[in-house]
Simulated scan of single mutants.
Amino acid sequence: MSTPAAPALDSLDLALLQALADHPRVGDLELSRLLSVARATVQGRLRRLGEAGVIRGWSPELSAAAAGFDVAAFVSLEIAQGALDTVRDELLAIPGVVEAFVTTGTSDVLCRIAAASHAGLQGVLLDLNRSTSVVRSTSVMVLSTLIEPRLLPLLATTAAGREARAPAYR
């Protein structure tokens, strides 16, 4: 499965993404006013960013902690050779597993867990360890979030570098 080529983001794309982050429920017309560009420009950019997968959806950003699941942990799993598909299916069946990543290093999979209590977290850990494909698990409790998930600063580095290399004329 090939990954589509990443679009070349420019300062208008970044401004549009920042405006969406700051005002997630804003419409195209208001975005065009905020950015001082034509509505068709906003619509075209949104379509391009959506088709490229930069914008993955329009669903609300959910908070596990605000919804009562304020106990969080990361769990690294060492799994049996060739068991990745089985482990994926097993992880999907455990609601407390909110994310999972295939990794390099001493573990094979890193999971982010959310639970309503320490007892709930223990239940998720027990569910993980019931898997015959999991050889070993190591858990680390989250005490607090230091940096919330963010991508705009990273995206800005590519656009800033591209614009710095662009010719002075336009």
Rank of each mutant, 00 (worst) to 15 (best):
M1W: 04
M1P: 04
S2N: 07
A5G: 07
A5K: 12
A6W: 09
S11T: 11
S11H: 12
L12K: 03
D13V: 06
L14Q: 03
A15G: 06
A15L: 10
L17D: 04
L17E: 01
Q18C: 05
Q18T: 13
Q18E: 15
A21L: 14
A21R: 10
H23G: 00
P24Y: 11
V26T: 13
V26S: 05
V26I: 15
D28Q: 13
D28Y: 10
L29V: 13
L29D: 08
S32F: 02
S32D: 02
R33A: 11
L35W: 04
R39E: 12
R39V: 12
A40K: 09
V42M: 02
G44L: 02
G44M: 01
R45V: 01
R48Q: 15
L49N: 05
E51H: 09
E51N: 06
G53S: 06
R56V: 14
R56M: 10
G57Q: 06
G57L: 08
P60Y: 10
P60D: 12
E61C: 08
S63D: 12
A64P: 01
A65Y: 08
A67M: 14
A67L: 15
G68P: 05
A72F: 06
A73E: 07
A73P: 00
F74P: 00
F74N: 12
F74A: 07
S76K: 08
Q81N: 08
A83W: 04
A83H: 10
A83P: 00
D85E: 15
D85A: 15
T86D: 15
T86R: 14
V87S: 07
R88K: 07
D89Q: 14
E90P: 00
L91F: 06
L91E: 02
L92E: 14
A93Q: 01
I94E: 03
A100K: 01
F101P: 00
F101E: 08
T103P: 01
G105C: 04
T106Q: 15
D108L: 09
V109K: 01
R112F: 12
R112D: 07
R112H: 12
R112T: 09
I113E: 05
A114K: 11
A114S: 13
A115Q: 03
A115K: 04
A116F: 10
H118Q: 08
H118L: 10
H118T: 03
H118K: 09
A119S: 15
G120P: 04
Q122G: 08
V124L: 07
V124F: 07
D127E: 13
R130Q: 09
S131R: 05
S131H: 01
T132P: 04
V134K: 00
R136Y: 02
R136C: 00
S137G: 03
T138F: 09
T138A: 13
T138S: 12
S139N: 03
M141R: 11
V142I: 13
L143K: 03
L146H: 12
E148I: 01
P149Q: 03
L151S: 05
L151Y: 02
L151G: 01
L151K: 01
L152W: 08
L152G: 02
L155K: 05
A160R: 14
G161C: 03
R165P: 00
R165T: 05
R165I: 07
P167S: 07
P167L: 11
A168V: 11
A168Q: 09
Y169L: 15
R170L: 15
